[in-house]
Amino acid sequence: MFSTSQSVVLLLLVLASFLVQVFALIDAGIRPAHAYLAENKLKKPIWLLILLVAALLTYALGGSFYSLLLVTPALVYLADVRPKIQPYSRRQGGGSGSGPRRPSSGGW
C-alpha cells in the first residue's frame, strides 16, 4: 500500500504527534487545578483523561494514519488552555503562584 519512504514519513509524523501528546499531558499535569476553573476551562482531571486516552490510542494504533487525528486534543490544549493557565503556575517565579502576576505600579 505504502512505499518504504511513505511509511517512514508516516511513522515520523506519528512519533512527533505522540511526543506532542505526551508533552501536553505532562504540562496539564503540572498546572494547578484551580487555574482551569479560574479561566473557565474544563476541569483538570477531564483534560488529563482526554489527553491520556488520545496518547494511549495513538500508541495502540501505531503507524496508522488515523492516529494522526488524535493529536487534535493536545493541539487544542496547547493553543487554547495552556496560555490561559500558564500564569497560575508556581514555576513562573516570584510570588506565591496563586494567580496571574500583575504589573507593578512602581514605587515602594
Rank of each mutant, 00 (worst) to 15 (best):
G62A: 12
Y88L: 04
K41F: 15
L75N: 04
L25D: 07
S105G: 13
Q92I: 13
Y88H: 02
A28I: 04
S3L: 10
P45K: 05
A24R: 08
G95W: 01
S104I: 04
V9C: 09
V22G: 07
Q6W: 02
T72E: 08
L75R: 08
G63A: 10
W47F: 10
A28F: 03
V20R: 14
E39M: 13
A28D: 03
N40R: 15
A54K: 03
V53Y: 04
G62K: 09
Y36S: 02
F18N: 04
L57N: 11
L51G: 06
G62N: 11
T72M: 14
S3C: 09
R90E: 11
D80T: 11
I46P: 01
P73Q: 05
F18W: 12
I30V: 12
F18Y: 09
S17A: 15
G99N: 05
L13S: 11
L68P: 00
L15T: 14
V22L: 15
P87Q: 02
L48T: 06
I26E: 09
V8S: 15
L69Q: 06
G93R: 11
L15P: 00
T72S: 09
S89I: 01
P73R: 02
S5C: 01
P32T: 06
S64F: 10
L49T: 14
Y59H: 06
T72F: 15
A38T: 08
L15W: 12
L70A: 04
L61M: 15
I46Y: 15
A16P: 00
I85D: 01
S3R: 09
Y77R: 00
R31H: 12
G99K: 02
L69S: 11
Q86E: 13
N40I: 10
P32C: 08
P73G: 00
N40K: 15
L51F: 07
V53M: 09
M1H: 14
P32V: 11
L11I: 05
S89F: 06
R90L: 08
L11N: 11
G29N: 11
V76K: 09
L70F: 12
S98H: 07
R101M: 13
Y88M: 03
I85R: 01
S67M: 03
Y77P: 01
G62S: 12
L15C: 14
L48K: 14
L37V: 13
V14C: 15
L70Y: 06
G93F: 07
A16K: 04
V22D: 05
P73A: 05
S3Y: 05
W47L: 02
W108D: 12
L19H: 10
P103H: 12
G93P: 01
G106I: 04
G63T: 08
G29A: 08
A55T: 02
A74H: 05
I26P: 00
R31D: 00
G95V: 06
L75C: 09
L75D: 01
P45G: 08
P100C: 07
I85P: 01
G62F: 04
G29F: 10
W47D: 02
T4K: 10
A35H: 03
A54Y: 02
V14N: 14
L56A: 13
F2C: 08
V22T: 09
G106V: 03
L42W: 12
